[in-house]
Simulated scan of single mutants.
Amino acid sequence: MERKFLVILALAASTGVASAAETTEPGNVEFVDGAVEASLTGVPGDAANGRKIVGDKGLGNCVACHQNGDMTDIPWHGEIGPMLDGAGERWSEAELRGIVANAKMMFPDSMMPSFYKVDGFIRPGKAFTGKAADDSFGPLLEAQQVEDVVAYLTTLKDD
């Protein structure tokens, strides 16, 4: 009987029937001193995809503000934020997750965008844009993209 249960459980897990970890919505992220201990997805981040997001001008665009010695293939690194080299030694995974999700929780005066936030913004209305302000927008990065960026940043060590 026990073996039959294990076989059924294994089949359910392999077919996706078993319950998967739920994504934490932006408004439900729990920050402790700026850090976010729990994964936003329950799925490990993909460092290779995180590297792409960090360098992609249409996604994370982290290199617009940060220099990164690992990305010599991408031109025009900014100098506004701290170097990303050694980020995996300077901050823990939880701290990096908090910084990427909403850097202002750890560094209130940061100019870094909040990549996983959807409320609390001050938006211009009709006088500036000619259109009414719209509150229906999502985060800059999806939860798994945040996890991927964090996975990549943890690989950046000082040599």
Rank of each mutant, 00 (worst) to 15 (best):
E2K: 10
R3H: 04
K4T: 03
I8E: 02
A10V: 13
L11H: 05
L11A: 15
A12R: 04
A13M: 08
A13T: 05
S14E: 04
S19P: 01
S19D: 01
A21I: 04
P26A: 09
G27M: 10
G27Y: 09
F31D: 00
V32R: 04
G34V: 13
G34R: 04
A35T: 12
A35D: 09
E37R: 07
L40A: 03
T41I: 14
G45I: 15
A47K: 13
N49W: 00
G50Y: 07
K52D: 13
I53E: 01
V54G: 01
V54K: 01
V54F: 01
G55Q: 02
K57Q: 06
G58C: 05
G58Y: 00
G58Q: 03
G58A: 14
L59C: 05
G60H: 01
V63E: 00
A64S: 15
G69T: 11
T72D: 06
I74E: 02
W76H: 05
W76Q: 07
I80Y: 02
I80T: 12
I80C: 06
G81F: 08
D85F: 11
G86A: 13
G86E: 02
E89K: 02
W91N: 09
S92H: 07
E93W: 00
A94R: 04
E95W: 00
E95R: 03
G98Y: 08
I99V: 10
I99K: 01
V100M: 02
A101F: 05
A101T: 12
N102W: 08
N102M: 12
M105K: 15
M106E: 02
F107Y: 13
S110K: 09
M112N: 12
S114Y: 02
F115G: 05
Y116A: 11
V118W: 00
D119I: 09
G120Y: 02
I122G: 11
R123Y: 06
P124H: 06
K126Q: 14
G130E: 09
G130L: 15
K131I: 05
K131G: 06
G138E: 08
P139G: 11
L140T: 12
L140I: 15
L140H: 10
L141P: 11
A143Y: 03
V146D: 02
E147L: 11
D148R: 12
V149W: 04
V150W: 04
A151N: 05
T155V: 15
T155A: 13
L156I: 10
D158A: 15
